[in-house]
């Protein structure tokens, strides 16, 4: 009896170890390394292959890698290259249309995706004004990357920056006016 009681914990430990090994083997993904090239077109080719061969869950990291590579060779044409890559991702079923729009507009459009909303400003925006402005501020830094550092679109970036300031001013006035009616 005593011997049996001593052995059983050892057996249990062994079984756990075996199960862990099996689980580890089952969840092993193919290696999903980042593109090593500094050429954007080659990097996109590499990323497309990786995304089609089991690395789709690394989409965010790959997008970030591509932006970093593009920062090394900024030009207005990069906007089109990223747009085509996102459209391809949509066609492959890696992203929904809405996601593709979000990825593109957040980095390459003057308008802020943080200002999406279906309800009026008095009822929806004003109670969440601070959070919206905080989100816009973060989005502005993405736009700095996409518009300024990747696409060399200075006008676009400075327009976005001014838009942020205008929204801040107009929301302050509008929300004060909304609150005054209560």
């Amino acid at each position: 009896m005593i011997t049996q009681n001593l052995i059983s914990p050892v057996k249990i430990l062994g079984m756990i170890a075996a199960l862990m090994t099996i689980a580890a083997c089952a969840s092993t993904e193919p290696g999903c390394p980042s593109p090593q090239t500094r050429n954007l077109d080659s990097a996109i080719g590499f990323v497309k292959t990786s995304l089609n061969t089991g690395c789709e869950s690394h989409f965010d990291r790959y997008y970030d890698d591509l932006l970093t590579i593009a920062e090394g060779d900024p030009k207005p044409e990069n906007k089109r290259i990223f747009s085509e890559f996102l459209l391809w991702s949509g066609d492959q079923g890696l992203l929904s249309t809405r996601q593709a729009q979000e990825y593109y507009n957040r980095f390459f459009n003057v308008k802020f995706m943080s200002m999406k909303g279906d309800y009026n400003n008095c009822s929806h925006t004003c109670p969440n004004k601070q959070r919206m402005l905080f989100d816009m501020e973060r989005e502005l830094s993405d736009k700095e990357r996409g518009l300024l550092k990747v696409s060399e679109d200075r006008d676009g970036y400075y327009r976005a920056d001014r838009l942020y300031q205008e929204v801040e001013l107009v929301l302050e006035a509008t929300c004060t006016a909304c609150a005054a009616s209560r």
């Binding site: 308008k111 200002m115 009026n120 919206m132 929300c175």
Partner: peptide
């Protein structure tokens, strides 16, 4: 405040 959503406000600006 009442006639516009945040997106419409942004488009106006």
């Amino acid at each position: 405040g009442k006639k516009m959503t945040p997106w419409q406000l942004q488009e106006t600006l």
